[in-house]
């Protein structure tokens, strides 16, 4: 591997990301969630389910389950860690900040977002932005109380 491609890959797969992939946080089911949503990324088969337990205006507990690539699963793990204990409004702001980061490749500088900023390298890989965004979009859907399913692929089928 050349030095250049090595650093490009290291930008994408930062150590903290691989850490979350190997040891996902909040990956155990919670009892009687307040709201839930399922998300999928048909392009690479990523699937994630988010269960949220809300007490007052705070996210008291959250869990994710599913399977997929390291980007989608580590992003889900980091997302749960970030929103746990925060208010619903803060969580929604986090979703917005994350989606903006995927477009601008600039760190939002939010409190508690440090680990998540490791995903900034994903913005350089347009094909992977959908993977990284999946859990966040699914959280947004769950918080909207609409349940149902979200997808990060706008096309209904792809062609080989």
């Amino acid at each position: 591997m050349t030095a250049m491609t090595g650093s490009l890959l290291d930008d994408l797969y930062r150590e903290i990301l691989l850490n979350h992939y190997r040891q996902p946080r909040n990956h155990v089911a919670i009892d009687s969630p307040t709201c839930s949503a399922d998300g999928s990324n048909p392009l690479c088969g990523d699937q994630v389910r988010i269960d949220v337990s809300i007490e007052g205006d705070r996210i008291a507990a959250i869990s994710f389950s599913g399977s997929g690539c390291s980007i989608s699963q580590s992003s889900a793990s980091m997302m749960t860690e970030y929103v746990k204990g925060r208010t619903v409004a803060e969580a929604r702001a986090g979703v917005d900040a994350f989606q903006r980061m995927m477009i601008t490749a600039e760190a939002p500088g939010l409190d508690g977002f440090d680990d998540i900023e490791a995903l900034i390298g994903v913005a350089k890989f347009p094909a992977r932005v959908k993977c990284a965004s999946l859990a966040w979009k699914t959280l947004e859907q769950a918080l909207a109380g609409e349940g149902g399913a979200v997808t990060t692929d706008e096309r209904s089928t792809e062609h080989v």
Binding site: L9, C44, C69, S70, V160
Partner: peptide
């Protein structure tokens, strides 16, 4: 995951397909 395999392979110049 196959998607991660395809990503790393690309940095070696190897173009494969990953997905369903």
């Amino acid at each position: 995951h196959p998607h991660d395999v395809g990503q790393v392979l690309d940095t070696h110049g190897v173009a494969i397909r990953t997905g369903h």
